Simulated scan of single mutants.
Amino acid sequence: MKKIFLFVALAAAMISCNDKSEKTATSSETKESKSGNENIVYIDTEKLMKEYKESVDFESKFKAMSEKMQSELEGDMKKFQNDVMDLQKNAQSKGMEWAQQREAELGKRQQTLAQKEQNYMKKFQEESAVERDSLVSKMKKFIKTYGAEKGYDYVLGTGDASTVLYAKEGSDITEEVLKLMNEAYENKSTSTETPEVKKETKK
């Protein structure tokens, strides 16, 4: 009757940075480069997801949520298993009627525990999916705005499914974008608005 709880594994799967392609964006404006070719830069999306503070906070939040759910379910299951052992131990001494009644009660509790586990998993999946979609949407909007203001023709993304096999030095804008996004997130940690790209002051 032992149950296996998969919440920690589920949390890791939900929070991992598998969907690198969602973080890429292209700018709506163009800028003529010195060579006359298209102005293309790229972002290491895996690094962005690992070091962007809002993404780190997201991971911590749902890891804690997963561990809390797992701990509660394991506590319920331990009590249930202890009651099953008590039934087996005292069934003969307390009589058939008591044993049958107790067995029926435990059967209902087992069903309740199974339903509780399903409800927790559903809640975890739904809440994490909503917040993850919101996070990805804000990141894409930030990068799109950043790319447009900088005048880039394209902002590509790298990661496990890399779309950039070679790039000349200076094409990687990951650190700059990461710095601006973290600054914007820290400055607006109490706001739900999408962080804006800081505009540089022209000298």
Rank of each mutant, 00 (worst) to 15 (best):
F7G: 02
F7T: 05
F7M: 12
L10R: 07
L10T: 13
A12D: 12
I15S: 10
I15R: 07
S16G: 11
N18F: 09
D19P: 04
S21E: 13
E22V: 15
K23T: 06
T24R: 11
T24N: 07
T26V: 10
T26M: 03
S27P: 15
E29T: 15
S33N: 11
S35A: 13
N39A: 08
I40L: 06
I40K: 05
V41C: 11
D44S: 10
T45Q: 09
K50P: 02
E51N: 14
Y52W: 15
K53D: 07
E54H: 09
S55W: 04
V56F: 02
D57E: 13
F58G: 04
F58Y: 15
K63L: 09
K63S: 11
M65N: 08
S66A: 15
M69V: 06
Q70L: 07
E72W: 05
E72V: 13
L73Y: 00
E74P: 08
E74L: 14
M77D: 11
M77F: 13
K78I: 04
F80C: 01
D83P: 03
V84C: 04
V84A: 04
D86I: 06
Q88A: 04
Q88W: 00
N90P: 05
Q92F: 09
Q100S: 05
Q101I: 11
Q101D: 11
R102E: 13
A104L: 13
A104W: 01
G107Q: 07
T112F: 08
L113E: 02
L113Q: 11
A114Y: 08
Q115E: 14
K116N: 06
N119K: 15
Y120H: 12
Y120L: 06
Y120N: 14
K122Y: 06
K122W: 03
K123Q: 14
Q125E: 08
S128T: 15
E131I: 03
R132L: 06
R132D: 02
D133S: 15
S137G: 00
S137M: 02
K138Q: 12
K140Y: 00
T145V: 08
Y146E: 00
G147C: 04
G147T: 09
E149I: 12
L156Q: 02
T158D: 03
V164L: 07
V164Q: 05
E169Y: 11
D172N: 15
E176L: 11
V177N: 07
L178P: 04
K179Y: 07
L180T: 04
M181G: 07
E183N: 12
A184C: 01
A184P: 09
Y185V: 04
Y185Q: 12
T190S: 12
S191I: 09
E193R: 09
T194D: 03
V197C: 03
K203L: 08
K203V: 12
